[in-house]
Amino acid sequence: MSKQVQVHGALFLVALIYGSNYSIAKEVMPVYVGPYGLIVIRVVAAAIFFGIFSRLVTKEKIVGWADNLRAILCGLTGIAINQLCFFGGLNLTSPINAALLMVIVPIIVLLFSAILLRERVSLRKVAGIVLACLGAFLLIYTSRTGTSTGNMLGDLLIILNAVSFGLYLVLVKPLMQKYNAFTIVSRIFTVGAFIVVPFGWKQVSAPDYSSFPVEIWLALVYMVIAVTIIAYLFNTWALRYANPSLVGAYIYLQPLLAIFIAIGFGKDVFTLQKGIYALLIFAGVYLVSRTRQAVAEQ
């Protein structure tokens, strides 16, 4: 299997996991666990897992003042600000609004890549982003219902989350070219855990966990193992071989996959219109992936 296929497979799995997270997280919060308490559970559990696993896999350490500072910034942008704003925003706004606003991530990545990494912004890449953004917008817009309402503060928090995550994808790229993926993920989750605990300690200690039904426990396990550990690890690994713009472009698949999941559970129907919008999304991702720096074969 070629490296390109592996990278796209990893990014597709991440998009699938994130696409399902919008609905699953809303089942848990705020009735069972508050948004910031949910973040503490996810981030602390992941920090412990990656801390132990990284010691078993590699003895590598991040060295140098510049790399350590970059790792701290990655923990701040990729874990703390990203998670606090996303779950705080999702708790207030609708999953549809959140998914729609998250499609600005590739645009943020493209801007930060051009500024910080001096990545060349080709016309093909711009066309791919515009095409995929159009498909995602139309897909989500036509899927809205009369009961789907947003919240201004929630929407603003989702936008801030998108900006923070886009910056993280750019900041972590140089580290991934020098260190093992487990070394990077372990450090950024450790940094993130120290920051999010003060925000969510009251919410994580308030619930009566013994009263949780089985499906809520399964949702919590899924969000820790899949949404947090697997998704971050695969995303970080993919950045070793793909540029940030390609990784960011896969955000457009999230609303598409979310609808497919809903169809599988009988909560939505597939139409020709949705099929056309899906083709726009895939075409946009293809154009971004076909740029010169999209995937480095190694």
Rank of each mutant, 00 (worst) to 15 (best):
A45T: 13
G34W: 01
V31Y: 07
G51E: 10
Y22G: 02
Y32S: 09
V43G: 05
I52D: 01
S23K: 03
I24A: 12
A25F: 12
P30C: 10
V40H: 01
V43I: 11
I39K: 02
K26N: 10
V33G: 04
Y36F: 15
L38H: 10
G37R: 01
V44G: 06
A46N: 10
P30A: 11
G19P: 03
L38D: 01
A47P: 14
P30K: 10
V44W: 01
G19D: 05
N21I: 05
F53E: 09
V31W: 14
I17S: 03
G37D: 07
Y36P: 01
Y18M: 06
I24V: 07
Y32L: 04
Y18H: 02
V40G: 03
I41Q: 02
V33F: 03
I41S: 07
E27P: 03
I39A: 13
G37T: 13
V28P: 09
N21G: 14
I52Q: 04
L38G: 15
A47V: 10
A45F: 14
E27K: 14
I17Y: 00
S20E: 01
V31M: 14
V28R: 11
G51N: 14
Y18R: 00
F49C: 04
Y18D: 07
G37S: 03
R42D: 09
I17A: 00
Y18K: 00
V33Y: 05
Y18G: 07
N21Y: 02
G34S: 09
I48L: 15
M29R: 14
V28Q: 08
S20H: 00
I39Q: 07
V28H: 12
P30G: 12
A46R: 13
V33D: 02
I41Y: 00
Y18S: 01
V43C: 05
Y22V: 03
F50S: 15
Y36I: 05
V33R: 00
P30L: 08
G37Q: 00
V40P: 02
V43Q: 03
L38A: 09
G37L: 01
Y36H: 11
A46G: 15
G51R: 14
A25C: 09
A47Q: 14
F50H: 12
V31D: 15
G51C: 08
I24K: 04
N21V: 04
I48T: 13
Y22F: 14
S20I: 02
I39G: 08
G51F: 09
L38F: 15
F50N: 15
Y32M: 08
M29K: 12
N21C: 13
Y32R: 06
I41R: 07
G34H: 00
F50E: 15
P30H: 11
A25N: 06
P35M: 08
